[in-house]
Design a protein around this nucleic acid. Structure first.
Lengths: 182, 182
DNA sequence: GTGGGCATGTAAGGTGTTACATGATTCT
DNA sequence: AGAATCATGTAACACCTTACATGCCCAC
């Protein structure tokens, strides 16, 4: 397994929370890490197979009725691999942003178009804000009882801070475009 | 040329500023759009060739001494294609964020590790802030004279707002980890 | 009985980066 | 002379998503 691929670490990390199947992992990612990391089935299943082959995780074949289910768990070497990666400096990649790319070349179209894109984005951010706030509210209660979810809390906080900043940016940008075009 | 690929629009957009060669385009991207969009040579050159073949751009072969240089310009259909894309709603993709992924699984390592990652990130953001501020200062002067760079200004503003929010988040996260672990 | 959720997986194809190959020109 | 920059391009490989294939179980 190539050390550079991050998919494996997303998988190992998920298993560090609790043993689970590929299907459950996909669901869990959709519900929790989705806003900063997600993997498709086409990545999850082959990665689980490779990690199992290389003994970083173990498989337990369960039967739910006559339906097979493969529940994966971290092995000692798997935990070690995950920890080693957690210790390394994370890479900093400025993410691609299609909205900003379109705005950058906005002089080719009417200012109304750019303003429309920004308004739509602002609305989406406001929706996301509500979702994040719900997550944070429920996590904050738990954080005061046991330490674990403090890391989940700061992940959600990253989301909320980002969208708040984007909403501010949307407002200022619209003002600037209105003022300096026509 | 597949309509879904965004590389072509980054290329058409670049040519909407002025005609240029592949080499100049790469340089221009490194210097301006790099923080929200960049393309490698392995994308730029084949894309220029395809767009030229399909008449969205035209080529002029120049000679600098005995060294060949291909300067590309937008054709009328190229301008139309760019504009059509600019009118479409941009996609909203929550970008992958390796730092947040590592923090999310931070309970597997010492809190000091996570705090270290955050501190390092905060420093990088503060450096970026200085760079963005320089860009914005120089653009603001120009914006008051002619409208064009208002779109460049809001792109830079997106960067500055984002890193400012990240710095705040770093500070709060470190406080939370310090408070709720040990 | 059928639609939706559970469950595993593969195939094809697009996207993208890295590293290399090549060679001229310009600066020190 | 040698290094950096200008300039174009390709090959190999990694990454990732979409769509499909398969089939069981359960609720209505």
């Amino acid at each position: 397994m190539n050390k550079g691929s991050k998919t494996q670490y997303a998988v190992l990390g998920a298993l560090s929370i609790q043993p689970m199947s590929g299907y459950e992992m996909k669901k869990m990612m959709n519900e929790s890490t989705n806003y900063f990391w997600s993997e498709s089935n086409g990545q999850i299943y082959p990665t689980l197979a490779k990690l199992a082959k290389e003994k970083y995780i173990t498989v337990e074949n369960q039967l739910v009725g006559s339906k097979p289910k493969k529940v994966y768990s971290l092995s000692a070497t798997g935990v070690a691999r995950l920890k080693k990666w957690l210790l390394e400096d994370p890479e900093y990649y400025p993410a691609r942003n299609e909205l900003v790319l379109k705005l950058f070349y906005g002089q080719n179209v009417s200012p109304k178009i750019s303003i429309g894109h920004i308004n739509k984005h602002s609305e989406r951010c406001k929706q996301a804000l509500i979702v994040y706030q719900d997550i944070i509210d429920s996590l904050e209660v738990l954080v005061r009882k046991k330490q674990r979810p403090v890391y989940f809390l700061i992940a959600a906080l990253a989301g909320i801070k980002a969208v708040e900043a984007e909403i501010e940016w949307c407002n200022e940008s619209i003002k600037l475009i209105s003022k300096y075009t026509k």
